[in-house]
């Protein structure tokens, strides 16, 4: 609501006291940060730090134990058309009988209009996205015949043709070749130049400084959030990539086992 009445508020993503304890996924404790629009943002942390859990919670795929998320100042359900999501490559079955072109066109599907046919514009945008990612020649291939890098490009093309304002990407650089990484970075720079926001889960500390203007570091709790220049320092990296807090994981296990509420009944955050 705030963003409608106040056009100067350019918040892309607000995460408020978010705690997640979900099955065997890494837990998140009271995560709290805000990100501005038009930035390239990296979410960093070691394995098992809950980066992907955070991404999935933001995308509404996991229910948090407490806290809430706002995108563009509003709950997810109001802004779905303005966001594009690039899930982890491993989240789908690549033997599914579908061609590259069909996957990319999925970006143009509207949730309430799954019955009709795609318009000419939709098809053009999909073709353009294929070109942008340099996979036009693969358009009629079956997706099982692609390399890891090509599969990632397909996912990215699907997101690009959505023409969203915010792009959420879950580890787009895992298992891709150098050429693909370069292509993806080029596209991300282009999108940022158009004023789009890119929020990406990333695992490589070395390239992070070069790729992102903004960094969020996690290790089941928030370590830091700020511009790369401010927060990319040895101290933060050490506490993020150092060992986890044993007491946190101890209590996290207990919460999981008992399915225990992390907020008292009757008390809510929002």
């Amino acid at each position: 609501m705030a963003s409608k009445s106040n056009p100067h508020n350019n918040s892309a993503l607000q995460v408020h006291s978010l705690s997640v304890f979900y099955g065997d996924k890494p837990a998140l404790w009271e995560i709290d940060f805000e990100l501005k629009q038009g930035k390239k943002i990296g979410i960093l942390g070691p394995n098992g730090s809950g980066k992907s859990t955070l991404m999935k919670t933001i995308m509404g795929l996991i229910k948090p134990a407490s806290g809430y998320v706002k995108i563009l100042g509003e709950p997810l359900s109001n802004v779905r058309s303005k966001i594009a999501y690039v899930p982890q490559k491993e989240s789908v079955d690549w033997d599914f009988p579908i061609t590259v072109k069909e996957v990319v066109q999925m970006g143009r599907y509207k949730p309430n209009k799954l019955f009709g046919r795609l318009s000419k514009l939709d098809k053009e945008l999909a073709t353009k996205a294929l070109e942008q990612l340099k996979i036009s020649d693969l358009a009629d291939r079956h997706i099982a015949q692609l390399s890891g890098g090509q599969q990632q490009r397909v996912f990215l093309a699907r997101a690009i043709c959505q023409e969203a304002d915010i792009y959420f990407m879950d580890e787009p650089f895992t298992g891709v070749d150098a050429a693909t990484e370069e292509t993806i970075i080029g596209i991300i720079d282009e999108l940022a130049a158009e004023g789009k926001t890119i929020i990406m889960v990333h695992h490589d500390l070395n390239s992070a400084q070069e790729y992102f203007d903004h960094i969020v570091m996690l290790n089941t709790r928030l370590i830091c959030c700020g511009s790369t220049a401010e927060v990319y320092n040895q101290e933060n990296i050490k506490s993020a990539f150092g060992s986890q807090l044993t007491i946190l994981s101890e209590i996290g296990n207990k919460i999981n086992e008992l399915n225990y509420p992390v907020r008292e009944a009757g008390e809510s955050d929002s």
């Binding site: 995308m59 795929l61 779905r80 999501y85 989240s91 789908v92 599907y109 949730p111 799954l114 019955f115």
Partner: peptide
């Protein structure tokens, strides 16, 4: 025939579909 695209989308990528707002 009516829901071909929906069936395809949900069967292929369940999480992407639900992020898109598909019920």
């Amino acid at each position: 025939a009516l829901a071909y695209r929906g069936i395809k989308l949900i069967s292929f990528d369940h999480s992407y579909a639900s992020v898109k707002g598909v019920k």
